[in-house]
């Protein structure tokens, strides 16, 4: 009885061992095919669809005035939203990690709000605030200011949506580093600015860059919130993602995909940047510990 048990145990173990490589390749295969079906093929489709009617038409779709206006607006939005959110992200992360105050956890939760709420709701909130029938509507109208269905609305919605990226990236890094190096800088006679630029910033630079890259990708690609506040006025309040949608709805597939390919390119560039930064961070960590 005992011997047979022993044999059985051994054989199971051997079988397990033999199965291991098969299981490993099965898992990897599933993951890869999922990735292929849901990410790689669509990406490929975007480019093939865009170039279907020839390279000439592809560029024509991109340099068409409305498309150019959309690209300009998207760049402008990102140019405002990314620096602003970088600045506030650094300030918020600094405040949260270096000081203790009441309501700190509440603040951390609030920072996550743009991630938690649907972008459409975020857009609607701003319509309710700044729209003609909104809370601040009459005030804005009296001063002849237009936010909703205008560029400011798009910028504000983008600011809201992309706020968490930099903060979220910085909080764990700053928490881990503590403040001893900064205190050392102060005892050596550095001013607050010198401390920040010579000690704090070099220590968080890779994390900060990572946050900025993600923030930028989202700022350029945001659809939901921007769509609600934009009003879709061609050549005026259309960002690249909104322009793609308009073209698509007009059955202008080649042009839609041509413009969409810009966003896809942006995504690829972002990913390349992101992996460079990740590689740099890892190398730094390795060298410094």
């Amino acid at each position: 009885m005992e011997t047979s048990n022993l044999v059985e145990v051994t054989s199971t173990r051997v079988r397990n061992f033999m199965l291991a490589p098969i299981r490993k390749w099965l898992l990897i295969g599933v993951a890869l095919s999922f990735l292929g079906i849901f990410i790689f093929i669509p990406l490929l489709a975007v480019f093939s669809e865009a170039l279907k009617k020839g390279i000439g038409l592809y560029f024509a779709a991109i340099i068409e005035p409305d498309a150019l206006a959309a690209i300009k607006l998207t760049l402008l939005t990102a140019l405002i939203a990314v620096p602003v959110n970088t600045l506030f992200g650094v300030i918020a992360a600094w405040g949260i990690t270096k000081f203790n105050f009441k309501g700190k956890n509440m603040l951390i939760t609030l920072i996550d709000l743009p991630f938690a709420v649907s972008p459409v709701i975020a857009g609607l909130v701003f319509v309710l605030l700044f729209g003609t029938s909104g809370v601040l509507g009459p005030l804005l109208e009296a001063n002849n200011m237009k936010i909703i269905f205008a560029v400011p609305g798009i910028v504000i919605a983008t600011l809201f949506i992309t706020f968490p990226f930099v903060v979220r990236e910085l909080i764990p890094i700053m928490q881990e580093q503590g403040s001893e190096e900064e205190q050392a800088a102060l005892t050596l006679g550095a001013s607050s600015w010198q401390m920040f630029f010579r000690v704090t910033l070099p220590n968080i630079k890779w994390g900060l860059l990572y946050g900025i890259i993600l923030c930028n990708a989202r700022a350029m690609g945001e659809f939901g919130a921007v769509s609600v506040v934009s009003g879709h006025i061609r050549g005026l309040t259309n960002t690249v993602p909104l322009h793609v949608e308009i073209l698509y709805n007009e059955y202008n597939f080649a042009a839609a995909f041509a413009v969409a390919s810009l966003l896809a390119l942006l995504a690829i560039v972002t990913l390349v940047f992101k992996s460079i930064v990740e590689w740099k961070t890892k190398r730094n960590d390795h060298g410094e510990r």
Binding site: E181, Q183, A184, T187, S191, R198, N203
Partner: peptide, 19 residues
Amino acid sequence: TVKERKVGFVFQHYALFKH
């Protein structure tokens, strides 16, 4: 302030600037 006091401070865990 710390800066005005002009003291030399040595930390237990050195606190050297890593970069």
